[in-house]
Design a protein around this nucleic acid. Structure first.
Lengths: 208, 208, 208, 208
DNA sequence: AATGAATGAGCCTTCATTCAT
DNA sequence: GATGAATGAAGGCTCATTCAT
């Protein structure tokens, strides 16, 4: 599959990707229709299967692609001179949202990824990349001296991440319910009160 | 739909519910088969649609049922003499897991709910019940004097809840990946270190 | 499958059978199209699968049906007062061709059955019925005293059968090649010279 | 097609032939995949169709090739000093099996030929070659004086051939059903009792 | 000559839903 | 109320064949 993919014309691959991303984003895996995907991508039925073998193959490819894109952009755009963990985390959250905004269709697709059992299938990529990634982005050049003595650093980081993630999910859910369009800038700024609470909670008094 | 449902024999309704719960738990909404549901419930195709109008109607009913069951049990079993918010939250988490364990089929179904976009569809029930519910269970008779002065109580509660939820989700994911069976007692006790961190973070020194 | 089949209206079953028999007769199993079958039978796609589960199920049913029909008619129409083995064999050949002629589509289908690996799948029916059948029709009330002394009776019967079968196959092939329509009466009479040869070869001089 | 074929490099043609023979042997005509054929032959999709026009063209070529090979070997290896028709027929049967054994892939393919309606399509080759062939191999230098007076020689030969063929087919079917591997030597020797019966039946007493 | 990307009709099968009984 | 036969659109996927390079 990968060999054939490499030879695929970039523009065409892009078209397929966008079409598929949108379809999978809009529907669950089962309900997503390869018919719609090829129709919107302007290619023939056979070609999709020529390149991706089957529906699952396409889905897996998309999953890897989105994940890899996210990783690439994060590593590229993160400012590692920022030593404050809270600012760092916010920065990364902003970058993530930027990726989602730049790639049409990715947002809902990413959401769908999280909501799918297929996470287990991503094991290989995630196992390879995530530890490295997170070791870097959430710890590299972080000034840990500001934290209160005796605080379990790793668990604190997790709480911060979880808080940001859940906040984001809540905003997305709310937008869905009310039919509102999300403004990423608002999400980002909305996190601030939570971060303030956590900063007060985890940092030494003089270091905030 | 609801009128007809009221006339439905309890035993028969029970059979349908269990069969449907199991089917929806085992599969995603689309893959779940009404054929299997009626077969296992021992009723005819037509009857299901007579009572539940269509597949989505059945699903929505189930969602409400499970949610309501959860609410009922929580309200019934929560010890409102427990004034410590951390203990209260843990208590409720334990109760929730108890419900999932007590109702065969509900567990996987509830998981499936979380893994589905259908959350948006639960709008009406959630909007009706949740605010009331949460106002009660996480605030009623809670001793807020232990919290540090100036702490935004609502947001702190949210952080605690989110932490517990995310921890649980992480355990479920991990179990899925490794094929391990989850022991709820272990999940519950595993949360303790996080709760300790948050307790230290949010409570006055003498009050922990 | 069988339960549902029993409830099927005879006329409709007949229509499906004829349509399927014709399609399977005209094409190999793989090439035969269930689309054509339902179209010619005037039923919906779903109904076919409702009754026969899948394509193979339909095929197997047809196989059994044709075989059973053949067996029934042979047992019913064979004149067991005819003690001469040659006449008996000819008689049965005539009966067989009568069945093929009476059931439109069966002829080519039966041919297809013989030309298919599926014979292995018919094992169960064949194993049950054939031994009984042939023990009856080729030996019951046959006067073996006419045979030359020392002749292996079973093998001689086989040679006679094989000769008749091969002769028939040759005629069918020839008809196919030349596009001629087969007249069963001609086939039957064409066998006579071969039977004469074999009669002279296997029977005592005075007994022919 | 034939012109182009002549220019085809022998080694490449051989590769295609073996690959195709194997694929058609393993599957029915419809199920046989040109994809598999080109893959195993190490050639491109386009090339196959360049030389053989379409799938049917390839199949027909193979049929002719196998048949011609059989004819060649039979004419070459038959011992025309053997004047006894029974020995001659057995000899040829042995030679046939030798061809099947010597050409990997041919065996299963030839079996498939028998199991196919395609016999009708072989019309042209068979019509051209068979009469000549059989006139030669079953009559050339045969001592007909041993036969009983008044016996229709041609029909008797046919009965002998048919007996041998049917016996072979029966063995192959039985092997298929039981999953046994066929030993050609056993087939050959298994025919003997039938030949003995026919010899006694068709030959003068002193001439056996 | 040689390639393999591209096509699209066609395949079998599933399934929520309807409706005559 | 209760049944389940009947529907037919839609699904993923295969594959011989074509054609630009």
């Amino acid at each position: 599959m990968d060999e054939k993919l490499k030879k695929l014309d970039t523009a065409k691959l892009d078209g397929i990707r966008n079409s598929a991303l949108e379809e999978f984003g809009r529907n669950s895996y089962e309900k997503a229709s390869t018919n719609n995907i090829v129709k919107n991508a302007g290619i023939s039925k056979g070609l999709l299967f020529h390149y991706f073998v089957n529906k699952r193959g396409l889905y897996d490819y998309l999953e890897k692609f989105v994940f890899q894109k996210m990783v690439d952009v994060i590593l590229e755009e993160t400012d590692f001179d920022e030593t404050d963990i809270f600012n760092r985390i916010k920065q990364i959250a902003v970058i993530k949202m930027g990726v989602l905004a730049r790639y049409p269709g990715i947002e809902t697709f990413s959401k769908a990824i999280y909501n799918d059992k297929s996470i287990a299938d991503m094991k290989e990529i995630v196992d390879e990349m995530v530890p490295d990634l997170y070791r870097n982005i959430y710890t590299k050049n972080i000034d840990t001296s500001r934290f209160k003595d005796g605080l379990d650093f790793d668990k604190a980081i997790k709480i911060i991440q979880w808080t940001i993630e859940k906040y984001g999910e809540e905003q997305i859910d709310h937008a869905k319910k009310t039919g509102t369009v999300l403004h990423y800038s608002k999400i980002v700024s909305g996190i601030d009160p939570y971060i303030d609470i956590l900063r007060k909670a985890f940092c030494k008094k003089g270091e905030m």
